[in-house]
């Protein structure tokens, strides 16, 4: 137990944890949105994120981005990356909904069928990106997609620098950007769901689909909307991931998706603000755990905390439901 290291640099570890958790939170939004409306756990959502990272990799490679470009260009590349990743991830999420879930919904398939379809789709996407993409794209854009199933690096867009220091805790530019972006995206989504006409439709369908339909809400359109919104958030997460960690792989979504799903459950699945709280909390717990013991234990500690939290608050930290809480 390395208490000296943990408490000696508690502020630093908290900052690290927050920036780690911010990415979980953005991905968690996708799980929570879909669950809130459809009571469906979309396990293919982790692959929506993975597609986003490959979209960023693709567009940066196509633009010929080098390590550490001048700041003006860097901002431009980040914005282009964000747009492309949001389009790719949103498009993938929409395609998943249209191709896989909608036909099942039409037939009133039981929930288990949805679950296994989601897992199957996830595997298909992972292997398509792992095996097919290097063969297909490798010829046209060499060195871009690497070899089958191996990791590929991306250029460093922004050099990590310490912006300011508070009492020995260093906050870097990248950590700040990741955290602020995640909170802003989250706030925008929260505003959209709670304050706009479309958002009211989403809440109506979440509360009571039949009544919402009677009131003239187009349920299919609402469902498409939430998949696209979840995809856009995953695309934003993909850009932040690419900026901070600068690599991707076909199987990158698996562990991250699991963590994000955990974050969603921890905060209260179906609850948007819960996803943010759950993500940040999980990030901090993981970094504390890894510091206290070793990084090998971080998942164990994270899941022990999840179980303990759920024992006392079975619906998560902030409670379930997209519609009911603030209808």
């Amino acid at each position: 137990m390395n208490f000296d290291e943990l408490f000696g640099h508690l502020g630093q570890h908290t900052v690290d944890g927050l920036s780690k958790g911010a990415i979980y939170a953005l991905i968690a939004l996708g799980y929570t949105l879909v669950y809130g409306v459809l009571r469906l756990i979309n396990f293919a959502h982790s692959e929506v994120f993975m597609v986003g990272t490959f979209a960023v990799l693709g567009v940066w490679t196509a633009l010929g981005v080098e390590n550490n470009p001048p700041i003006g260009q860097a901002v431009l590349f980040l914005v282009i990356g964000l747009v492309v990743a949001a389009l790719a991830s949103g498009g993938t999420a929409l395609a998943i909904e249209r191709i896989a879930y909608r036909p099942l919904r039409r037939k009133n398939a039981p929930p288990l069928i949805f679950l296994i379809t989601a897992i199957g789709l996830s595997l298909v996407l992972v292997e398509v990106f792992g095996l097919l993409l290097p063969d297909v794209a490798g010829g046209a854009l060499p060195s871009m997609f690497g070899r089958a199933r191996q990791i590929v690096g991306m250029p460093t867009i922004l050099k990590q620098e310490t912006l300011f220091e508070i009492g020995g805790t260093q906050i870097t530019n990248i950590q700040l950007i990741v955290f602020v972006c995640a909170v802003v995206m989250m706030a925008l989504l929260d505003w959209f769901i709670n304050r706009t006409r479309y958002g009211r439709g989403v809440r109506a369908v979440a509360q009571n689909p039949e009544t919402a339909a009677l009131m003239g809400v187009n349920q299919e359109r609402v469902i498409m909307l939430i998949f696209v919104l979840g995809g856009i958030m995953a695309g934003a997460a993909a850009l932040l991931w690419s900026m901070r960690f600068g690599f991707t792989q076909n199987s990158i979504g698996f562990v991250l998706g699991l963590k994000a799903f955990t974050a969603a459950v921890l905060g209260g699945i179906g609850n948007l603000r819960g996803a943010l709280v759950g993500g940040l909390f999980l990030g901090i717990v993981e970094v504390y755990g890894a510091t206290l013991l070793s990084s090998q234990w971080e998942d164990v500690i994270a899941f022990v905390v999840l179980v303990v939290v759920l024992m006392f608050r079975p619906t998560g930290l902030l409670g379930e439901s997209l519609g009911r809480a603030r209808a």
């Binding site: 570890h13 780690k20 690599f247 562990v255 970094v287 890894a290 510091t291 990084s295 090998q296």
Partner: peptide, 16 residues
């Protein structure tokens, strides 16, 4: 420090 296979984020290790 010990990390685990498939790990991607190494903040704690880097701090150590």
């Amino acid at each position: 420090d010990k990390i685990q296979e498939k790990q991607s984020q190494f903040d704690a290790t880097v701090s150590k």
